[in-house]
Each structure stands twice: as C-alpha cells, then as structure tokens.
Simulated scan of single mutants.
Amino acid sequence: MTSAQRKDDHVRLAMEQHRAHSGLNQFDEVSFVHHALAGIDRPDVSLATSFGGIEWQAPLYINAMTGGSAKTGEINRDLATAARESGVAIASGSMNAYLKDPSCAHTFSVLRTHNPDGFVMANINATTSVDNARRAIDLLRADALQIHVNTAQETPMPEGDRSFSSWVGQIEQIAAGVDVPVIVKEVGNGLSRQTVLLLQNLGVRVADLAGRGGTDFARIENGRRELADYAFLHGWGQSTAACLLDAQDVALPVLASGGVRNPLDVARSLALGARAVGVSGGFLRTLMDDGVPALVAQITTWLDQLAALMTMLGARTPADLTRCDVLIHGSLRDFCADRGIDTSRLAQRSASTHSLASIDTLHDLTGSTR
C-alpha cells in the first residue's frame, strides 16, 4: 500500500468512527459551579491567549489532520481557507510523506499558500532528523513545529515503527536545533504528568495533551489489519480531561485536544488549565459533510459562544477561567483520587476572588474606602 493510499484510508476510517461515535466522553464529568452574580459585560471579554512565546487572537485551533495525497491536499486547502476566514491557527498532518517523497509537497504547502498570514504549525514524527524538521518548517514557513508521539498508533499499524527508545533524545535535539517553538503532542492517547515534566526538561516549549475521546488511531490502524487482531488497544490511554487534571500546576504550558465537541468543552478545557484547545475530527466532519462555508460558520459560532460562556462565568480572558469553580464527577473523580489530585480545591478556587469583589461592592454602596 502506498503512503497516499494510507492517508486516504485514515480520513475514511476517521469519518466512519466519528459518525458512529456516541458523543459521550469524560468532559461530561466536568461541570462549572454556577454563581448567579458572577457575570460581566461582553465588551470586557477578550479571547486572546499567549503561551510559550506564542500569541493567538483566540484559544481555538484546527489541529493536525492530513496531507500526502491528492484528496488530502484538497482537504488541507479547504482547512487553510477556513482557518484564514475564521482567524484561528492551524496545524498540518504528519509531513513524513513529504520528507520521503517531495513530489507531494503541494498537499501540505497549500496550508500556507491559502492562509498566507495565519499561524501555521508543521508536524513531524519523533524519528525525524533535525535537518528534515527544518525542511518541514521551511516548506510551510511554519510559525511552530509539532512533534507527534504515537506509540499506541504505531503498534497496530502494519508498517509502523517498533523502536521507540530514541524518541526522547531525538525530541531534545529537534527542540534545540530549530528556530521556532516546539510543541509535542499525542495523537489521541494522552500525555501523563510524568511525560509533560520530561518534555519540559527536554526544552520543549508546549505540550498538546491530545487525550482519548476523539479519533482513536489505534482503532483506525487495527481496521487496516487483515485480522483486526489488536482490538484490545481500542480506547487506550487517558482522556483529555484526565490529562488536564494530571498536569495541574506543571510549569510547561499545555494545550488540550481530543474529544472536544462544543464550546462548553473548550471552556472546560481552559478552566482545567489549557492555554488553547484544538479540534480535528469534529471540524473535519463538518468540512466533509457541508463544505468550507459551514466550517467557517461553525468556528465563528464556537468563538462567539465561548465568549458568551466567559461573560456568564465572569472570565475576562481565557486564563481567568482557571479561577472558576469546577466539579469533577464519576470515573474522572476516581482517576483523580488514584493519581493523588485534590479536586476539592478546584471547586473552591473562586472564594477569595468573590470575597474581594463583595468587599469592593459593600464599600461602593457605603461610600467607605479601604
């Protein structure tokens, strides 16, 4: 099977998976405590976010998907158009196909040619040489570089890697050898706290947790096997919500992706510490079913609804959502207990802020000063 056929298979199987998905995941076990007088004025809300030397006008991005075949080149062109029209960042799919066969370069470079002024991320695997990492960046004139780590995908992949011990050293070399911020991301199985701390020590600028709940690449690769004999890997790893909780108080900035279904999931992710939130499968489904205008409308609506949620919750910036009280339920709460994560403080973190606000209001009403 050629690389182009494999890329087309990935898109086909991913779409089948998303259309059959129940829609439920562990984001449903995260809820906001409602404070009826916490709201602010909509003009005071800004969606701008910054992290790891990166500044975006919104905390939402189109995450890594595809490239490497004629069909996926058309998808990348349309995704780039949607990113340009909605003003969000975008990442390419794995550029390994281009590094092996430069004739498919145009299936990736459309991300830049159709989005000349946008924030574009190149994407490579952890076995890539520093020179090839620079080639990928140069092709897209990329503003950042994603390195994806995907042992649970490679393992059932018929032609996948079976040697992973060099990845740590190679990530460190790439982070030191390129001139753009390096983001290490999973592909749907999650990054643990220990992994994020390791990445911080390797010189990586940002970690994309990319947890379970969205596209399951172990399932996709098993579907490409003649006997489909790796079904026991379906659902492997931690959910995005679990990864966010596991990474509490880690200094390295984290992004959230994997299973993000709506603006409430975006707000939940930001409240749990993500600096921005990526979407792949959900946006791809809209594009494939309804076209570019529908995807632009979806992204624009999500940003408007996120701002509405922030207004109701009293968060002037995405970072302010980390001061909102959240409750953790069900199996996600069990995960936190086993990992030694104190969820009670998440449910009470607005107390000091509300106390100060109440004092200020009382002083305003009485005319007194502090």
Rank of each mutant, 00 (worst) to 15 (best):
L303D: 05
G211V: 05
G160Q: 02
E74F: 06
Q200N: 15
L191K: 09
R345K: 14
V206E: 08
I137Y: 01
V296F: 09
H329P: 01
L191N: 08
V168F: 14
R141I: 00
A152W: 10
L365P: 00
R225A: 02
R193P: 08
G237P: 07
N76G: 06
L327M: 14
R134Q: 10
A242N: 10
N115F: 06
S103G: 08
P253H: 11
A144F: 04
F119T: 08
N189S: 15
D304W: 07
A351Q: 12
T81C: 13
A210F: 07
L356I: 05
I75G: 00
A48Y: 07
I359W: 14
P116H: 03
V168I: 14
T300D: 14
A319W: 13
S3T: 11
L198I: 14
T317Y: 13
T128W: 11
L191W: 11
A38M: 12
A251L: 13
T353R: 15
R349Q: 12
L47Y: 09
D342N: 15
G213K: 11
G330K: 07
N115M: 09
D208S: 03
R268G: 02
Q173A: 15
L313N: 07
T155R: 11
G278N: 05
A210S: 15
E172L: 09
S165H: 12
